[in-house]
Design a protein around this nucleic acid. Structure first.
Lengths: 123, 123
DNA sequence: TCGATGTGTGACATTGATGTGAGGGTCAAG
DNA sequence: CTTGACCCTCACATCAATGTCACACATCGA
């Protein structure tokens, strides 16, 4: 598919798709006329990238963790350096912290909203 | 406590503490000499702010959700506008999405690391 | 009292993710 | 063949979070 369709299917500005490619997060072939051509799987990949960006990870990190989220995992296994493993472990732990933080605040907001709705019913 | 101590206890650059105050996320009194003076509870507040920033929330939003995370909840209850409630509900839902995204990726990284460690043991 | 350290304000720089626009090809439909 | 919708690249602008520097007090210990 061309970039316009990818843009629609991922709800992502064309500008950003080119940016993600520049940062090495997604890949495209080129059609004879120079247009970018995307495989279907890129749609999922873009959603994943956006999710990770939204959750505060910089592209630099996303680029590092993406390979280990691929389905064709076996291919990547042998190539990992100890350095890479350390990075992944670190990011995994940071993710756990983030989950904890979000969970806590999510609950707090929820409790609050519930209290408010009771308040309203009572008045 | 003065800003230097708060900085140490929250592992946050002094610059940022002043910025958070400017954005209305934390509060300080002033000593006679003009120095900022912080109550103890601000330490927790700063940690919370940093956590939320780290998880991708902008200060504008943090400012809105912080009041409902206070312990003195009763005070704030009557003042909430429907508008505010809508915002909170929206943010709560976005948090849920983020938690899901993080959980998924956290698991994927973990699985990957486990596979790698098996690979190593096998070789 | 002097010097180091801490604090205040203010201004400017930087970085990463985005927006926006210019100038120029491609292509399909009329 | 022309027009409109897409696509290309490149450059510049923006915005929020953060870094850095300059200059002026305050404080405190030697």
């Amino acid at each position: 598919m061309k970039i316009g369709e990818l843009s629609q299917r991922t709800n992502t500005p064309v500008r950003m798709l080119r940016y993600y490619e520049e940062q090495g997060l997604i890949h495209s072939e080129r059609l004879p006329n120079g247009y970018r051509n995307y495989e279907d799987y890129v749609v999922d990949r873009v959603w994943q990238v956006r999710g990770l960006l939204d959750v505060g990870l910089p592209t630099r990190i996303i680029k590092q963790i993406l390979p280990c989220l691929d389905s064709s995992r076996a291919i990547h296994l042998p190539y990992v350096t100890p350095d890479m493993i350390a990075t992944l472990e670190h990011e995994r732990d940071r993710m756990a912290e983030k989950i904890e933080c979000l969970t806590k605040n999510h609950r707090a907001i929820n409790d609050y909203l519930e209290a408010v709705s009771h308040e309203i019913r009572a008045s």
